[in-house]
């Protein structure tokens, strides 16, 4: 059985990395945007593997259902639907790439050399929805409410920036 989990892990890791690479290096913005789908799906799968069932669903709904669509709209609006070359070129890649590689190396060293806070025996994953709901409404009530204020502000702000868009025409 562990092999199956490992297999799933490897498969989704591959998906994530492939999607990320496309996102980072593709010359076509539409490809990059779509590759985000791969990353999000892969991460959602990881959430599931880690036992965060609620989060996996949220990731799929919010990211793929919301943010992804938003991006695609934005890409098409800013590039013109008829415009074929939706380019997404890079600059300074030869300077940034080595730095990124070094950074990854350093992080890898960090990951393997650190004694992370890990419990001895990993408990079985249990459904988390209920506990998340409970915690949100007790201990994490303040952030929960504050986030609602933030979202109200963002809503109004984004609309106000966009509304002018319409009015300007």
């Amino acid at each position: 059985m562990p092999d199956l989990t490992l297999l799933i892990f490897l498969a989704f890791s591959g998906l994530i990395l492939g999607a990320c690479l496309v996102l980072a290096f593709s010359k076509n913005l539409v490809y990059s945007a779509f590759s985000l789908l791969g990353t999000f799906t892969g991460v959602a799968a990881f959430f599931a593997l880690l036992g965060a069932d609620f989060l996996a669903i949220a990731q799929l709904l919010v990211y793929i259902g919301g943010i992804m669509v938003l991006y695609l709209f934005a890409v098409l609006m800013t590039s013109g639907i008829a415009d074929v070359k939706v380019t997404n070129r890079s600059i300074g890649l030869k300077f940034a790439l080595p730095v990124a590689v070094i950074l990854f190396g350093l992080l890898a060293k960090l990951i393997f050399s650190t004694e992370w806070f890990v419990v001895k025996e990993l408990p079985e994953a249990t459904p988390t929805t209920a506990s998340i709901g409970n915690t949100l409404l007790t201990q994490y009530l303040l952030p929960f409410e504050l986030a609602s204020v933030l979202l109200l502000g963002v809503l109004v702000g984004a609309v106000s920036l966009g509304r002018r868009e319409v009015k300007g025409d």
Partner: peptide, 25 residues
């Protein structure tokens, strides 16, 4: 390690992309 790879590729993207939406991705 996978998460670090996502992180680094994300940073690489923001540091090199010309298209504003590309950076946002």
């Amino acid at each position: 390690l996978v998460s670090a790879a996502i992180f680094v590729l994300g940073l690489l993207t923001v540091a090199t992309r010309r298209n504003a939406l590309g950076i946002l991705l």
